[in-house]
Design a protein around this nucleic acid. Structure first.
Length: 199
DNA sequence: CACATGATCGCCT
DNA sequence: GGCGATCATGTGG
């Protein structure tokens, strides 16, 4: 519903092909790495808006205390996280922010990749999308989009453009200190050369 | 039904 | 570096 920032406008013919289901059905950490460098795109009123992912985090389901699906938690909010890989999971936090995830693995697994930062085509140094809530705000993503399928020819799509392993750094996830040992797992992936990462 | 808190951000010091 | 905003959600009684 809400309008994407016009600075995210891009030419659809310049995009790599959209990912199909198989891309997302793989192990979550693989999808996280392979998603870096790819374009997350929204079609809105006939125009295309998108950004290139430069920072993501893997959330590993029931065994991951930092995940919304930890210990098998399954509620109305988290239901889209149990959909088959390739769906979008969006949640609302702190009474004002939205965060978006790429669901991974087969249905009923409950794993996902949180989108934490992206850069825009025309200005890779801009920090307009340098944070998970900023990413959603810039693209106009909210809870009403949770559960949409990225692999259908719909409003949202993802266009992978994988980068070599040596271009990727790993570190602990942000904002999950409450998660005990899981807080230390190196499940945050960033593009080394990007200046648009969140921290 | 009540209440404690969060996968954040921007402003203040 | 610290904190307040602001409310949906999950959990427990």
């Amino acid at each position: 519903m809400s309008r994407p920032d016009p600075r995210l406008r891009l030419a659809p013919e310049s995009l790599p092909p959209a990912a199909s289901r198989d891309f997302f059905l793989r192990p979550t950490r693989t999808v996280a790495r392979q998603a870096l460098g790819g374009w997350f795109v929204r079609r809105w009123r006939g125009n295309y808006y998108g950004a290139r992912l430069v920072e993501v985090e893997a959330y590993l389901g029931a065994r991951d205390r930092a995940a919304h699906t930890w210990n098998g938690r399954r509620t109305a909010r988290t239901e889209p996280m149990y959909a088959a890989g390739g769906h979008l999971y969006v949640y609302f936090v702190y009474g004002l922010h939205h965060c978006g995830n790429l669901v991974t693995r087969p249905a009923d697994t409950g794993e996902a990749v949180l989108i934490r930062a992206a850069e825009i085509a025309d200005d890779p140094a801009a920090r307009l999308l340098s944070g998970p809530a900023k990413f959603c705000a810039a693209l106009g993503i909210s809870r009403i989009h949770s559960g949409l399928d990225l692999t259908e020819d719909g409003e949202f799509s993802f266009h992978p453009a994988p980068v070599p392993a040596h271009a990727i750094a790993r570190s602990a996830r942000i904002g999950v200190a409450y998660a005990g040992e899981a807080a230390l797992w190196p499940l945050r992936y960033t593009l080394k050369k990007s200046v648009a990462i969140s921290v």
